[in-house]
């Protein structure tokens, strides 16, 4: 297992290097002088020169690239243009909020999505299947900011079950509404893949054998079918992490709560490129790590993957 983990980590290194390269160049394809873009047309010449110096913009591009790589590898993601604080300090401050939000959403997604998908597949083309499929279609069709706004309108204002304003902590009911918003969309994605993945295994010979042997239906579904259907489910959860991250950005904006998403939007409005650049790196690192984690979970679920 340890070799498996190490191998997987090694494979991620070129991807991470690629990520850093893309981030570096995306920020630099900005038309015009980045210093003018950041400070605005009316900035004075000395101010522009200081900024160029500070950002290393007057050095050759390739040198800038390697110095960027070097500092990132040392854990230095640069300083915010606005607060002059290291970006990572800001990130660490708000990270728990975003983690809590996305973690809760993922949990809601798995707790409700998997059983709903299983029920939908088990009673295929029955009324339960149709109801579940209708709601998962609806969930897939909702952009997160729209569902957030509608939840806000419905629950926090029309039927005041949840307070609109509150602390960004799960102890506070307002956070539950935000988690619900993200969670319902995750439920839709997970239900759907659980259903199709269950349908793919439910007609296999070994399922029929188990049924013929007289294994109770619950055990057939739980032990024989679901265990084999889990791999695509785990894959999709890993894949939709990107969607979840995007949705958390939108949710944080609508609910006006602190978090990585809010940080990005503030940086965007203030043209704080170093922060934006750093945030993109951080998000990408999360996704790469999540992919590794997904592979490790494969190994746990399916011994064939582990031994390959």
């Amino acid at each position: 297992m340890l070799t498996f983990i190490l191998k997987r980590l090694l494979v991620a290194i070129p991807t991470l290097l690629g990520v850093l390269t893309v981030v570096f160049f995306v920020v630099r394809v900005a038309p015009g002088d980045p210093a003018i873009v950041i400070l605005g047309e009316s900035a004075s010449a000395p101010a522009l020169e200081t900024l160029r110096e500070q950002l290393g913009l007057n050095r050759p591009l390739i040198e800038q690239y390697f110095s960027f790589l070097g500092s990132v590898l040392q854990g230095d993601l640069g300083r915010s243009m606005i607060s002059n604080q290291p970006v990572l300090t800001e990130v660490w401050r708000v990270l728990p909020y975003t983690f809590e939000l996305t973690g809760a959403a993922l949990l809601i997604g798995v707790i409700f999505g998997v059983p709903l998908g299983v029920i939908s597949a088990r009673y295929r083309n029955g009324w339960a299947d149709y109801v579940v499929r209708f709601f998962s279609l609806l969930g897939l069709s909702f952009p997160a900011f729209i569902s957030a706004i509608l939840l806000l309108l419905a629950f926090a204002i029309t039927i005041p079950l949840f307070p609109v304003i509150g602390e960004a902590s799960y102890a506070d009911p307002a956070q539950r509404l935000r988690a619900l918003n993200l969670g319902l969309i995750m439920v839709a994605y997970i239900t759907r893949v659980s259903r199709s993945s269950m349908l793919a295994v439910i007609n296999q010979d070994y399922i029929r054998t188990a049924q013929a042997k007289g294994v109770p239906p619950g055990v057939v579904v739980g032990r024989h079918a679901l265990r084999n259907a889990l791999i695509p489910i785990v894959t999709v959860i890993g894949l939709y992490l990107g969607v979840l991250i995007g949705n958390s950005v939108l949710t944080e904006i609508v609910f006006n709560r602190p978090g990585l998403g809010k940080l990005i939007v503030i940086a965007l409005n203030q043209r704080d490129y170093p922060t934006l650049q750093a945030m993109l790196v951080i998000y990408a690192v999360f996704i790469v790590l999540a992919n590794i984690l997904t592979d490790l979970i494969y190994g746990v679920i399916d011994p064939r993957v582990r031994n390959k």
Binding site: A30, V243, I245, V249, L268
Partner: peptide, 16 residues
Amino acid sequence: LSFPSLVMGLLVVAVL
């Protein structure tokens, strides 16, 4: 594929 698409789109539009 390692970039969340909304965040990537956001950065590209912000830069361009």
